[in-house]
Write a protein that binds this DNA or RNA. Structure first.
Lengths: 217, 217
DNA sequence: TAGATTGTTAATCGATTAACAATC
DNA sequence: TAGATTGTTAATCGATTAACAATC
């Protein structure tokens, strides 16, 4: 309800502030300034201030923000206090990596169940999360009113798994496969574009190399 | 050298175009228009045209682009023809997931070696990539002139692993751990901010929910 | 030719950064 | 008080989208 018009970019940064604030020593100073946060995270201080102003009561000039208040405000805003449930499809390496990523709980995401087609995996658990056969997916999502699906199946299986999620009434899909999914309107697909990240990284590297090599000319 | 001023966002999209173009049937039509690509990938057609204009000789009005030429141009531009070498630190679930992600080769990235501290893992291989003890890291990077490091260690080990990469002469670090790394100037850190993605996803979901619930009021 | 499609120029939009007044 | 820090208003920057002429 508080979700007025906080830009996406701010949302992306909030977890970073939170992680930094939590990493500070408990017995350290009670206050922290936007300037210090910005320096630690290699950001612009005005940006930090602007972000924080959107979700918190605000700090005091010369003193800064109360660290614990800030942590509480960010967590509340990101909805880390009331946990969301999700299911995961594809218990391969990537799927297992996400299942064992304890931090998701901290972020308010709890993975209720995982699904796979491999009979060898079905019935086992990863980090206490049971792995179930895919044909139970739609039914379980509906019964438990789960709205988030995490897709970590191999490329070829992605669309079928996606369809099953949609059938189960999923509203948002976090897609780690490199496939462009076809979904009915109204369902949000969030692609984790690793190839894209790699391309940007390579670009920066080659610019650096060009500069380095030009010296020799 | 061709790297004039192609924006980052274009770089992120190029792999998507490429994947789509490659997914088309070999024996299908030889030409494809920006309009069709845009529709398939849920993008704006002018944007696609603009992106393609930057890296390709261009298409012909009414006809479109030659599919195979476009594939060749994108691959060349992204440097997928001359492969870059990388090392990976942390052969846990996420690390193994990336190691078994065959697609990286397609993207021009080859992981030469992986490193871990766990004696049980050292000496084994994942998808033909050997896992070596971390103390060999710096030396190997330097000897093989490797400039990309992929960081998939647990949170607490991240900074130490990062320092080892820097010592080995790495120029870019692709960081999958949620830690803010401290690196000397001139080294590029690329954070894969999963918590951020999750936050944006949750945001969209809660906006949706608010709207849905308002109907009941 | 007519209509689809390209590529470019201009307008818009959103996000970041700079400048500055307010305040403790 | 003086100086550090906040929050806001305006300027800048970069990316997307709209409008349109060129062309096959």
């Amino acid at each position: 309800m508080e979700t007025k018009s906080v830009p996406s970019q701010t949302f992306r940064r909030l977890p970073q502030y939170l992680a930094y604030l939590k990493s500070l020593p408990q017995d350290g100073p009670a206050n922290i300034s936007a300037t210090v946060i910005a320096q630690a995270l290699d950001m612009n201080d005005v940006q930090v201030r602007k972000d924080l102003a959107m979700i918190s009561d605000g700090g005091r000039p010369k003193i800064g923000y109360v660290r614990t208040d800030l942590i509480r405000d960010i967590e509340r805003f990101l909805g880390y206090d009331d946990t969301r449930s999700a299911v995961l499809v594809g218990a391969g390496n990537l799927g297992r990596a996400l299942l064992s990523y304890e931090r998701f709980e901290e972020y308010g995401l709890s993975i209720a169940a995982a699904f796979d087609t491999d009979p060898a995996l079905i019935g086992t658990t990863v980090h206490k999360t049971p792995i179930l056969p895919v044909n139970k997916l739609a039914d379980l999502c509906r019964r438990l009113k789960i709205h988030i699906g995490i897709l970590t199946v191999p490329d070829v299986a992605a669309q079928a798994a996606c369809d099953a999620l949609v059938e189960g009434g999923i509203l948002a899909i976090w897609n780690f496969s490199p496939t462009q999914l076809r979904v009915p309107g109204g369902i949000l697909v969030f692609n984790e574009n690793m190839a894209g990240s790699l391309a940007v990284l390579s670009k920066h590297l080659s610019i650096r190399f060009c500069r380095a090599e030009r010296r020799d000319v």
